[in-house]
Write a protein that binds this DNA or RNA. Sequence first.
DNA 1: TCATAATGTTCTTCTGTAGATCATTATGCA
DNA 2: TGCATAATGATCTACAGAAGAACATTATGA
Lengths: 68, 68
Amino acid sequence: MIKCHLSKLMGEKKLKIVDVARETGVNRGTITRLYHETASRVELETIDALCRYLDCEVGELFEFMDDH
Amino acid sequence: MIKCHLSKLMGEKKLKIVDVARETGVNRGTITRLYHETASRVELETIDALCRYLDCEVGELFEFMDDH
DNA sequence: TCATAATGTTCTTCTGTAGATCATTATGCA
DNA sequence: TGCATAATGATCTACAGAAGAACATTATGA
């Protein structure tokens, strides 16, 4: 499975969902879904905006968990 | 922008699009779009299948390129 | 050269995000 | 403590693009 670490990254920086949505320009619903890991599809543009805003790599945002 | 390194990873292993599609169960059209970087959206399930098949991390498949 | 495999291309279908709105909960201040 | 406001949760419709299939074109190799 692919784990999304958005909530962890946001928690470390004490960011709110509204902040991230406002600053990245990404829809709040989208941020909410990634935060709660209920998203199953993601726009590359969204990943781009999050990496830029959180100053992180794609690999820090999404992790491949080998659960066979 | 987000760069997809699927073509590079496939090239290194001399893999064909049909092979990857067959082995991962991902639609060939989807592999083709990622290969040619014409995809703008991606299923987490697809990333999962590719990471597992290529034995790589998400960060090796997608890279954040900071082009301001 | 010919058969077959691989890739490219195009079309329809359908899923899930985008975006908006409303409901609920949390927060801060008087 | 109560109230105003901000943040989050939840839900709905519209739409973009992946999924999947089918057909065309190109590459491969016997």
